[in-house]
Write a protein that binds this DNA or RNA. Structure first.
Lengths: 213, 213
DNA sequence: CTAGAATATGAGGAATTCCTCGCTTTTTGT
DNA sequence: ACAAAAAGCGAGGAATTCCTCATATTCTAG
C-alpha cells in the first residue's frame, strides 16, 4: 500500500547533495517566473524550463503547483518574522526601533515588489498559509506592544494600538512599493515614521486647542 | 468587412429593454460569482448559470471574461469617485469630513469584502483599469489637498501629505475589512480618524519634549 | 399580421494547464 | 565493479475553460 499523500507536503525528501540544489533551483526559478507572469500564468512548465529541468523532476519535489508558492511564501514569512523579532528584541525608544524596522521593510519589499504582490495577493489561501500570516503578525504585534508599554514617551491608547502600528507600516510599505511609479525609499521611510510617531506620541487633545473655525 | 473588434468593448449595444436588463443581470451575477469563487475560478459558465442565461447570451454583451470584471471595477471606481467628490466638495474642518469619509469607505467595503478583494487584487491590470485607479486617486488627493490648505488646524507637512492621507485611509480600510476576523466598524473608523488626525495636527516636536531615556 | 431585426441558446472546438508514469541516467554503498 | 537507490526525463492523458457559431425564439415596426 502506498503511503498516504498529504497535499503541500514534499513528496520526497532529497537524500543527495544534487537533489537539494535542484530543489533550490526550482524555488528560485519559481520566484522569477511568478514575478514575471503572475500566479495564474506562472505555469509549472515555465518554472521547470526556467530552472533548466524537466517537468517530471519538478513534480518529484512538489506535489502540485500550489505547494511551490506555499513554500515560497512560508520562507518569506519566516524571514520577516526573524527580522522583526531581531529589531524588536529588547526595549528601546521608539525613535530607535521604528526607523530601523521601517527601513528594513521598505528595503526588502522594494527588492521584488511583483513577487511580493503574488505572495500576498494571489497565494492560495490555504489554512496553513493563513495561519502563518496570522502567527507572524501576532508575534510582531506582541513585540510592539511590549516596546510601547516600556516607552514613557508613548501615550497609552486603544487596545488596538499595537495592531494598528503594525498594520499601518506594512500597508503603507506595500502600497508605495507596488509596480506603480515607485517612491523614493528614504522619503517613504520618513513619512511612515512620521505618521506612526505622531499616532503614538500625540500632542494635547484637539478639543483643547484653539480653532479658527 | 466586419467591424474591427476592440477588446473590453461591448460587442453589441442593447436596443431593447430586455437586453439592458440582461446585461445588468450578467453584471450582478458576475459580482456574486467572483465574490464566491475568486477571479480564476469564477468561470463564464458559472456566471451565465448564476444569471439564468446561456453562455452564448453572455458573450453577446461582453467580448471576453476580463471585460466583465473591467466593467465591474470601473463602476466601483466611479461610485467611489462620486462619493469622495461629494464628501470633500466644500471646505470644512478636518473633524467634519474625515470621520464622514472614513465611515463611508468602511461601510462600502465592509459590505462585500471578497468582491472588493477580487477587484483590487486580481482585476486584469489593463492600462485602462490602471488609469482609472490612478485618476480616481489623483482626484481624491487633489480634493484632500485643497481642504488641508484651507484648514488652519492642519500643520503644513511634506508634499506627500495629502497622498499619504488618502493611502492610509484606504489601506487600513482594506486591511481590516478582509475576510479575516472583521473588526467592529465603529472602532475601525475611530482608530483611522485618530491616526490621520494626529498625523495632520501634531503636537510640539518630539525633540523638544522631556524624555526619560 | 408578418418580415426582419434583436436576442437567446448550448453543443462542442480549440487551447491551455496540471500532473502521471514508464523509462533512462547518475550516484552511492559495499 | 556492480547492484540498488536516487534523481531526472518528457510525451501525452485528463480535466478545465474560454469562446464560436449555427440555429431557435422573441420582439418591433409598418
Amino acid at each position: 500500500m502506498p503511503p498516504a499523500r498529504s497535499p503541500y507536503r514534499p513528496r520526497k525528501t532529497p537524500r543527495q547533495q544534487r537533489a537539494w540544489e535542484t530543489r533550490g533551483r526550482i524555488l528560485e526559478a519559481a520566484a522569477r517566473v511568478f514575478a514575471r507572469h503572475g500566479y495564474a500564468s506562472g505555469t509549472t512548465d515555465r518554472i521547470a524550463e526556467e530552472a533548466g529541468l524537466s517537468i517530471g523532476s519538478l513534480y518529484q519535489y512538489f506535489p502540485n503547483k500550489d505547494a511551490i508558492l506555499v513554500v515560497l511564501t512560508r520562507n518569506h514569512v519566516a524571514e520577516m518574522a526573524r527580522l522583526v523579532a531581531e529589531v524588536l528584541a529588547e526595549p528601546r525608544p521608539l525613535t530607535a526601533w521604528l526607523p530601523e524596522l521601517t527601513r528594513a521593510l521598505v528595503r526588502i519589499h522594494g527588492a521584488d515588489p511583483r513577487l511580493h504582490q503574488v505572495m500576498y495577493e494571489q497565494a492560495p489561501r490555504t489554512p496553513e498559509v493563513l495561519a502563518g500570516f496570522r502567527e507572524a503578525e501576532s508575534e510582531a504585534v506582541a513585540a510592539v506592544e511590549r516596546l510601547l508599554r516600556a516607552d514613557p514617551a508613548v501615550a497609552t491608547g486603544s487596545a488596538w494600538q499595537a495592531r494598528f502600528v503594525v498594520a499601518t507600516i506594512e500597508s503603507l510599505v506595500h502600497r508605495f512599493t507596488g509596480d506603480l511609479p515607485a517612491m523614493d525609499p528614504a522619503e517613504l521611510e520618513r513619512e511612515i515614521v512620521t505618521i506612526v510617531t505622531r499616532y503614538l506620541c500625540p500632542g494635547p487633545d484637539l478639543e483643547k486647542r484653539p480653532s479658527a473655525w
